[in-house]
Amino acid sequence: MLPERLRAAMTPLRWVAFGYVVAVLVVVVAAPVFAPHDPLQQDVSLRLLPPGTEGYLLGTDELGRDILSRLMYGARVELLIALGATLLAMVLGTLVGLAGGYFGGLVEVLTMRVGVDVLLAFPPIILALLAVTLRGPGAGTLIIAMGVLFAPTFARITYGQTISVKRLEYVEAATAFGAPTTTRMFQVVLPNVSAPIIVQFSLTIANAVLLESGLSYLGLGVVPPTPSWGSMVAQGQRYLATEPHALLVPGAVIVLTILAFGLLGDALRQWLDPKSRSAR
């Protein structure tokens, strides 16, 4: 049923990752349906219940809030920001890389050398912190900041691919047979450079979750009391010695989510872009 290359790429572990991602997406859409409690409802008498307590499957935090419900609502925030930022990054980066690679010359200098290289001179989290300082924390700031700072990766990938595809004879043939520039860029080149971009999309979601949870761990992500995975880890850290579940549970969810998107990226790469070489 599945194409052979896809079947070969989907190892059992990657199927599990796929299932997990689907489950997370379902939770994102229908968090109110699944969440057993109001994620903001506090009850000090129920504070720091261990996992497995009746009605509180994953236990409660130091304010007596249900961890499972907070994770579910946290998934909404997390994935909204990650997907939003990644989409923005993909569109920006692909356009910039395509233009830089296709036109070369001054356009290339302005896009790749000035734009991309300057952004890549910062570790992503540092630039995000600069944005937070200037605009204050919040989902909007994060999506825009992360969208801009993940764009260079897409730009570099698209640029590199465009440079090599541009040399192929079918692009020259399109020119020779009179295809307009936009046709050549978007109908001839773009479809042929898309595989690594799709792969990068999945990997960037993983990176965005990593970065967002890091920022909210520092208290610089979304504004409390909105539940977020990173801030749950930060809160749990205070009770690490006695009630480690308050840290380990949200921590595990972050790890699993990043891992799942990373594994899907690996599967996509093996399926769509088997020749490429990457550390991720």
Partner: peptide, 11 residues
């Protein structure tokens, strides 16, 4: 590569 440093560090 999926381990966030703040989670792994805490562990």
């Amino acid at each position: 590569v999926a381990l966030p440093v703040f989670v792994f560090g805490s562990v």
